[in-house]
Amino acid sequence: MASKTGFIRQTAPYLREPKANVKRMMYDVILALIPVVCFAFYKYRLNGLMIILTAVGSICLAEYLYYKFKKKPGTLKNGTALISGIIYALTLSDSIPLWAVFTGGVAGVYFSKLVFGGMGANIFNVAGFSRVFVMLSFGPLMQYKVDTVMSSTILGIANKTTAVTTLGNVSLFEMFLGINEPGSIGETSFLIILLAGIFLGIRKSLDWRVPVTIILTVFGLSFAVSLATGGPLLTYPMFTILSGGLIFGAVFMATDPITSPITATGRIYFGFGIGAITYLIRLYGALPEGVVYAILIMNMFTPALDYYKWSNPKFTKRSITIFSAVIIATVILVLVGV
């Protein structure tokens, strides 16, 4: 006989991908960050650990209190605040006082995420925004102890065409390992971050298109410079990639899906934009490090890249033409500056 009750309404499809869930993605990122955190602890000991704890604490606390006051269900469980906190801490220098870390974290998460409506609605990468907030507010406190702002100094030299050869003094392998390289507490080891990135890529928890395009763009532009100045052909591009927070930004900050475009093509333009702006900042700018700024600038362009009238999941003849023109223009712009 027909049953009268016991059925619930649902619409097709009735199956869901069991592996696809936000928690899995977020925990993957946390897992990938653990070696980087360990490295920071190894290098900076208690100081590094305190910075990380303060950063995580400030962001989580701000988010918790915000939702408490708003009388809405808390959102700490999904792990985004934790991740933002760790990434933010890893981009700071070891000399920064903890109160500055705390202020930056609270202000960063409030202005870049909570006011926009929490997870999924933020325009800017939370960690990047917090870091920029700290840099702009407490810049003088962010001194790198050894060989002040090494990357920029050497990049500065490199830009003077005559001095490209002096790069030979820097051991690329040492930079690859990052053990003695000065810099932000978690950004220096290319090797560890690369492995974390590969792990996330295999687990499909990040979109490989973004970091790969960023690295390729920076490599390509510096290679062009290298060619034009007749310097060491590969040493300079390799140095550019290994120095500063490029790989860290590419793997952990630019890949934040919430602040990147939603089409494959859009993500390639986005990655190219970050790479090009980073390199241009390094070449022309007065800043020690351009990656975070580049990411925030491209975050602003995300809605434009997603605009429905021109977003397209596939490359078309028109988009390839425009993209090629932009690439050529960027190369010319770079070469003019050398």
Binding site: M119, G120, I262, T263
Partner: peptide
């Protein structure tokens, strides 16, 4: 089937829907 629908979370713009759509649409948009 036994289970009901899983709980929804806010969109994190991962773009899996855009990548998977066989007709090349952008479902999230």
């Amino acid at each position: 089937f036994e289970k009901g629908e899983p709980a929804e979370e806010p969109c994190i713009r991962c773009a899996s829907c855009v990548y998977s759509c066989p007709t090349l649409l952008q479902p999230v948009q």
